[in-house]
Every structure is written in structure tokens, then in C-alpha cells.
Amino acid sequence: MENSYGSEIPHTPNVQPKNWLVESILATIFCCLPFGIAGIVFASQVNSKWVAGDHAGALEASRQAAKWTKISFLVSIAGFIFALIFVFFFGGMAFLGSLGVMGVNG
């Protein structure tokens, strides 16, 4: 995967590091967490630091943007799975309760 967008760590010093903007936007819209916005802030820093010639700073901002985007996605995927399990578990319990198999009162 030697392309400029696919690798997390840029392979050449002459290519601006990936800024994770699209991923951050997706995280902001779909994950309902402020972490996605943190990702956009760091994406902005990747661009402005790169333009200012601060390549090390841009690289660090890229790592931060990647980190917050991933945290955002992982937390929301975990939350989604947890919510679905919760719904099916209690849905199942209520169903059993309605059959009088189990005493579910709460």
C-alpha cells in the first residue's frame, strides 16, 4: 500500500501526511461524539502546518487526527453493537415474560 492516502505513516517527506478530514467528517456526522470534531481540528492543523513548512508538526497532527477518528468510530461501533444486544436481549426477555416462562417485572 504505497500510496499517499492509504498508509497512515507517510513514506516520503515530500508528501503531505494524510489529514483524515473525510474520516473525521464521517465520524462527526455518524458517531454523535465530539471526537469527530477533534479530528477535523487536527485535519485543519495538518494542512496549515504543512503549508507553513512545519512538516514534523503536520505529521504529529496527522497522527492525532487518525487517533481521534479511530476512537470515535470504535466507540460508536461498540455502542451500536451493545445497543442492539440490549434491544434483542430485553426484547427476548419481554417475550419470554409474556409467555409466563420467566418472571420479568422490570
Binding site: L21, V22, I25, I40, A43, S44, S48, W50
Partner: peptide, 10 residues
């Protein structure tokens, strides 16, 4: 997506 202005506006 690599324009500093675009990201700030977004």
C-alpha cells in the same frame, strides 16, 4: 480536502 481554507470553513 488538503486546502487549509476549506477545512477551516468546514
Amino acid at each position: 480536502f488538503y486546502s487549509p481554507l476549506f477545512v477551516k470553513l468546514f
